[in-house]
Simulated assay, not measured.
Amino acid sequence: MEARWRPEFCLLSWGANSYGQLGQGHAEDQYVPRFSDTAALHSKTFRAVAGGGGHSVFITENGEVYVCGQNHRGQLGLHISADISTLQLCPTLDQKITNVACGWDFTLFLTDCGQILACGSNSFGQLGVGEMVTHSADLLFVKCLKNPVVSVAAGLRHSLAVTDSGCVYQWGTGLFTHAKRALSPHPVPSHLSSKVPCLVPGLDQKISCQIAAGSTHCVCLTGDGDLFLWGSNKYGQLTATESFVSSPCLLKRSLLDGEKAIHVWSGWTHIVAQTERGRVFTWGRANYGQLGRQASASQNPEHQSAGPTEGANQEVCLPSEVKVLCGATQVACGSEHNLAIVGGSLFSWGWNEHGMCGDGSQADVVQPQLISGLRPCLIGCGAGHSVAVCCSV
């Protein structure tokens, strides 16, 4: 969902900061929200923010791009490969950018014409520009997508897009090894092994509108309110019994109490969805508190016996409601932590090793907790950091 804020703003960030991804001019982790350096913004208004493994991207209302953080693979699109610790304007080939998705070390920009521009690592074909490019500090057009794109997502090493006709495309080989191991001796389907956009099968009769990507899984939301999932099921994030699902499988609507889904987000190994009544459900990996609830509440013995998890402390959960998040107007997922705006207030939960939950500690947060004093208008997460744009503090 889209949110905008006006010039009377402050930009705060916290969590992992090894590469300057907090935009504060240094490279030290921050365990509570701190002001970022906004000198370069000149009272800009913003419409989107996203983060990758060590970088952050901000999209302005007029389509400009500001970036900071890790840049060793050119993921900031600045024509250089040096890390940047304060927000810097990114040239965008005269294209207006409307949204952004960040993978581990690459970035996908969506233009107002429905085109995708990509930069950063292409070691797994995640930029969608073929095999000849290993990485790029320049913005490259993903030319194979002929129809305008309306939604884009970046996983750890794979990418997804939805066109205006409702078709879903996938590229990048980040899921290939998992698929090969699970499907052998059968061949790996082309959409899991392609380095250019490839149509995802099994959604022919559906009109898709939004996609989300985990580290090794994919989620698609249709206009009918259905969710389809595919990829790795190691942590039960697909709600299936198989360890890997190669083609989209329907999430039983009964798991969402029979309600249609209207939004979906994904961390690396967990999924968050909101239904038509505003209720928020979470499922998947639970050992960092990333589900925002006690794992035992919806423990699924069938999944446990199927063996998609590793280690006694890793619990697999089916979808269950997190009631305190009902009515959330925004949700953002990092690798294993989350932010949400509920009633104008900011909540955080999950993995907290680098302080990304903003409570001043490094202890994981099992249930959504209020970050007091912040009234955010826009939120975003990187793998281990958090960002909030606030109208006042």
Rank of each mutant, 00 (worst) to 15 (best):
254 S>E: 15
268 W>S: 12
271 I>R: 00
275 T>Q: 04
267 G>T: 05
254 S>R: 11
255 L>T: 13
264 V>M: 10
282 T>S: 14
274 Q>V: 06
284 G>N: 09
283 W>P: 03
264 V>Y: 03
259 E>I: 01
282 T>W: 00
269 T>P: 00
270 H>R: 06
264 V>I: 15
255 L>F: 11
283 W>C: 10
269 T>E: 15
253 R>I: 10
260 K>H: 11
256 L>M: 09
259 E>L: 12
260 K>G: 08
253 R>M: 14
279 R>I: 01
279 R>P: 00
262 I>N: 07
264 V>W: 03
259 E>H: 14
269 T>D: 14
262 I>S: 08
279 R>E: 12
261 A>T: 05
267 G>R: 02
257 D>I: 02
258 G>V: 13
258 G>I: 11
271 I>K: 01
263 H>F: 04
283 W>L: 07
262 I>D: 09
268 W>K: 03
282 T>N: 12
263 H>P: 01
256 L>A: 04
259 E>G: 05
257 D>G: 10
271 I>L: 13
263 H>W: 05
267 G>Y: 05
272 V>F: 05
265 W>H: 13
259 E>Y: 04
257 D>V: 07
274 Q>R: 08
284 G>M: 05
252 K>W: 09
259 E>T: 04
283 W>R: 11
253 R>D: 11
262 I>V: 15
281 F>I: 00
273 A>E: 05
264 V>F: 04
257 D>H: 13
252 K>H: 14
260 K>Q: 15
253 R>L: 11
268 W>L: 08
265 W>A: 10
263 H>E: 14
257 D>C: 14
282 T>A: 12
277 R>L: 07
283 W>N: 08
277 R>V: 05
267 G>C: 10
258 G>M: 11
268 W>Q: 05
254 S>F: 00
258 G>P: 12
269 T>M: 09
254 S>C: 13
264 V>S: 05
279 R>W: 00
265 W>I: 02
273 A>L: 12
262 I>G: 03
265 W>T: 01
258 G>Q: 12
255 L>Q: 13
255 L>R: 12
277 R>T: 14
261 A>L: 09
265 W>C: 10
272 V>T: 13
267 G>M: 03
276 E>R: 09
